[in-house]
């Protein structure tokens, strides 16, 4: 391991995954501290999910090394699986089985205590629906069952792959608060998302992934400060809106010109977003990866 990746609950060192001639993950390295929420941010196809698949021992890396909870992903797959929980980007539940049957089957795969099934369903607020077939649930309810399933073995590390994708705002918010709660309980969380608001809201630390590589790394605040630009927005009495980078000469000139003319109706400053950071770094939109 290099000095950049030493220590930490998850240590990734020059991890590569190739599918034929296509390189999905191109030598990424990072460390995740215990108890933190670490975000892998990037558009679809950036390599986030492939990275998660390697860290959760679903895919073998082409080269490079990684350890999860101090265990080597190449050698200790079964032990790692015992320590982690995963919420997949798709809602892969047995639709014909009830919520209880779904969770209880996975509980038995971990040899966990039988009482744990009801406990995790209660934790996500699904206890009253546990005898209903999952196929009849809404997307938000299914997502809660998926989170309950990921917690069945009381994992130290949770991998959440697009946990709020396709959910309504209310369900998304519920799940984000739940993720925060899990983090406060000391669980290490790896979150992949292309939702920059979510990343900003949840993550203590972020890596922006683009074409299989990490192109920026830091806290959301740090990344916005380093790569983003706050903006001054001035609205005139005539209804025109002028924008200018905050604290720039251009901004000062704009403000004094409009102020002297008595044209200013309102003034506001707008903070840079992670989307701005991403566009600045890649020249692409974060949500769809288009130029």
């Amino acid at each position: 391991m290099t000095s950049d990746t030493a220590g930490g609950e998850i240590v990734v060192d020059k991890l590569v995954k190739r599918f034929g001639s296509f390189t999905a993950v191109d030598g990424i390295s990072f460390t995740v501290e215990k108890g933190s929420i670490f975000g892998l941010l990037g558009p679809n196809g950036a390599g986030k999910s492939t990275t998660i698949k390697m860290l959760t021992c679903q895919e073998r890396p082409t080269s490079g090394r990684a350890s999860v909870g101090g265990l080597d992903i190449a050698r200790d797959a079964l032990k790692i699986k015992q320590k982690i929980g995963i919420v997949f980007e798709y809602q892969n539940l047995y639709d014909e089985l009830t919520a209880y049957e779904n969770i209880d089957f996975f509980r038995s795969m971990f040899n966990a205590d039988r009482a744990r099934t009801r406990e995790v369903l209660k934790l996500v607020g699904m206890e009253e629906h546990m005898k209903k077939a999952v196929g009849k649930f809404s997307k938000g309810m299914k997502q809660k069952v998926l989170i309950a399933r990921s917690l069945i073995n009381d994992p130290d590390i949770l991998f959440l792959d697009e946990p709020t994708s396709g959910l309504d705002p209310r369900s998304s918010l519920d799940i984000r608060h739940f993720i925060q709660r899990l983090s406060q309980e000391g669980k290490t969380i790896i979150l992949t998302t292309h939702n920059m608001e979510e990343a900003d809201f949840l993550c203590h630390d972020l890596a922006i992934v683009h074409k299989g590589k990490i192109i920026a790394r830091g806290t959301p605040k740090m990344l916005k400060k380093q790569y983003g630009q706050d903006v001054l927005k001035v609205e005139t009495k005539g209804g025109n809106v002028f924008e200018s980078p905050l604290n720039s000469r251009e901004c000062a000139e704009l403000f004094s010109r409009l102020s002297l003319a008595g044209e200013i109706f309102s003034v506001a400053s707008e903070e840079a977003t992670l989307e701005d950071v991403f566009i600045r770094l890649t020249g692409e939109q974060l949500t769809n990866g288009h130029q």
Binding site: C57, Q58, L78, K81, I86, F88, Y90, L93, Y94, R149
Partner: peptide, 14 residues
């Protein structure tokens, strides 16, 4: 098809 096999293979089962 439903990708439940992926969830199953993510548990400590061979």
């Amino acid at each position: 098809e439903k990708k439940t096999i992926t969830a199953l293979m993510a548990t400590p089962v061979t």
